[in-house]
Each structure stands twice: as structure tokens, then as C-alpha cells.
Design a protein around this nucleic acid. Sequence first.
DNA 1: CGGGATCCCATTGGATACTG
DNA 2: CAGTATCCAATGGGATCCCG
Lengths: 111, 111
Amino acid sequence: MDKQHSQCSPCPVELTVNMIGGKYKLVILYQLAIHEVRRFNELRRELPNITPRTLTRQLRELESDGLINRQVYPEIPPKVEYSLSETGKSLNSILLQIENWGLKHITNNPK
Amino acid sequence: MDKQHSQCSPCPVELTVNMIGGKYKLVILYQLAIHEVRRFNELRRELPNITPRTLTRQLRELESDGLINRQVYPEIPPKVEYSLSETGKSLNSILLQIENWGLKHITNNPK
DNA sequence: CGGGATCCCATTGGATACTG
DNA sequence: CAGTATCCAATGGGATCCCG
């Protein structure tokens, strides 16, 4: 690895972690990467025991950081679709690598 | 992206986040990726305002997860060197991508 | 130098109930 | 269906002091 920029001010890794560091954020992004479009309760079912309050907040944070889009359909019953923004999509290869890393290094020897 | 494994049980992304999800863990791993070997106070200086207690705990967790090595030299004054384990090194390409992503998507338009 | 001990606070997330 | 509201628990991290 390059040894030039040992200093980070501010550290780009840290800045990125601040955006995607929530407990469920990467998993949400991962689900959206796989499914392209997901509704609120679909995500809820796919995330292990997440509460609606937490899911809402993580989605709002991802949205305000510009990583996902929130499309509201003015219908009854309500319909809201979440999807990756262009910026969010630029995380796809990282998401995939994280998934593969987990498959290789963790699920092989489950704790 | 592949749409087959929409289900995760347990989700590899989530498992990975559990290992590297600490506030400073990726930054520590990143510093070790760049410098190969770092001592306690070197890391302390490189991480923005981290307290020794927090640094100690994050290092211990990374160590018990097998991502870093802790080499103690029985000298006076004490000397402890931290470095990436082989497993830790396997995160290098992810670390680099995260750094580059941050450089591209965040430092361009600082909040 | 590389921590440990202690105390404290803030943020995050959970539980449950409710609603337009 | 897609959230809100309210309250609460836990975890993480900070501040400070101390030590071998």
C-alpha cells in the first residue's frame, strides 16, 4: 500500500465510516444493491428484528447523506420505495467485497 | 449484482460489520495497512483525540477477532507493536477502496 | 511507554403502542 | 402500509487519574 499519505486530515476512511457506520446501514445498502428497490416492510422483514423506529432513522440518515432515494407514492394504502442513489451505487463493489470477505472469513468458522 | 441470495442467515455483511464496525476500527486497520507496524502512542497520535482507554479496547477487540497481532517486547520502557494479521491483511483492498470512495465522494464537498 | 481504574455522559437501538 | 411517539436499556466512548 502507499505510504505517502500517512496523515489524514480529515481521514477519508473516518469520513466514510461516519456515513456508513450505523449498525444496519451497510446491510440496508446491501439489500438495496441486491434488490434494486425495496419497500419499508420488505426491508423490515429482511433485517433481523430491526424495529421500525430504528429502520426509519437509518433510512433517513442514508437519505440525508445522499446514498439512497426515497420515492413516495401518494396512494392509499401508502407505498414508499427505497433505492440506491448514484452515490449509493458507487458503493456496490465495496458491498460485494465485504460480503465475500464475510463468507470467506466468518461463516466458515461461526463463533 | 446477483439476486440469488436475497436472504442472509446469518448475513455475511452483518457479520463483517460486527467485526469492523467500531468507530475507529477501520481507521486503525487502515493505519496498520499503511504503516505495517505501529506502536500504541503512534496510533494515538494518528487518531483524532482518541482516549487511551478507547484505543486499548478497540485494539483488544481487533486482536481477539484475529485481525491484528500484538507483539510485546519485555523491555523497560515497555514497547508494544501492533500489526495486521494475515486475516487483517485480507481487508487491505477493502480499506483502500473505502479510502478512495471517501476521497471521491466526501472530501470534494466537505460538509 | 503502554496501558488500567473509575466514573460519567451521549448516542444508539429496543419495546410497545398508536395513527393517517 | 409506513411510519410516530414515548420511554427505556445498553453500549460506546470521554475525562481524569494512576501505575509498573
